[in-house]
Amino acid sequence: MTQLHITQPQEVPAAFEAAWNDHDMASFGALFHDDATFVNRFGHYVRGVEDIVGLHAPIHASIYSDSRLQNDLIDVNILSNDAAIVHFWSRLTAGEAHPAGPHAVDTLILAVLTKDGDAWQIKALENVTLTNPRTGESVLRGQEDDPGAVS
């Protein structure tokens, strides 16, 4: 598996984006600790880097083969010398390979990182689709006054 060397927690969104956009599942898997957990935007939970890659490899070979991500760091919360929480926006742009055709989806990602030696990796990640709480419809950031507001 590809070895990444992330020296600062704020590097994770860009590394995640690069691995996704290259459709490089070895680099994608290298972002995670061996026993990491991942919850995708549909609420599917997996544990272990093998299962995380196993969840993503088939979609990168099919419906997301021409997809692109754009990640934007929101914040980094350093908990200790070897633990941090990172929040970032992620816009997935699906292409012609997706059954629904080209479209975009915004999600908010929360990643818990831990440091092993001088490198940071993801210990847990949860991805939540941005939706209008009144209708349940997916929305894109900036297209509604406050799509995250609870009614």
Rank of each mutant, 00 (worst) to 15 (best):
Q10T: 14
E11G: 10
E11P: 07
V12M: 06
P13S: 03
P13H: 02
P13A: 03
A14W: 15
A15L: 10
A15H: 09
A15K: 13
F16V: 05
F16K: 04
F16I: 04
F16H: 08
E17M: 15
A18P: 12
A18M: 08
A19C: 04
A19H: 02
W20D: 01
W20G: 02
W20V: 05
D22Y: 09
D22K: 10
D22T: 12
D22V: 11
H23C: 14
D24K: 12
D24R: 05
M25Y: 15
A26K: 15
A26G: 13
A26T: 13
A26N: 14
G29Y: 14
A30H: 04
L31Y: 06
F32Q: 00
F32Y: 12
D34N: 11
D35W: 06
D35T: 12
D35M: 09
D35A: 14
A36I: 10
A36W: 05
T37I: 06
T37R: 01
T37E: 00
F38Q: 10
F38H: 13
V39N: 03
V39K: 03
N40L: 02
R41S: 07
R41I: 09
R41L: 10
R41M: 12
F42R: 15
F42W: 08
H44S: 14
H44Q: 15
V46H: 01
V46S: 01
R47W: 01
E50S: 15
I52V: 06
V53L: 00
G54K: 01
L55V: 06
L55Q: 13
L55I: 08
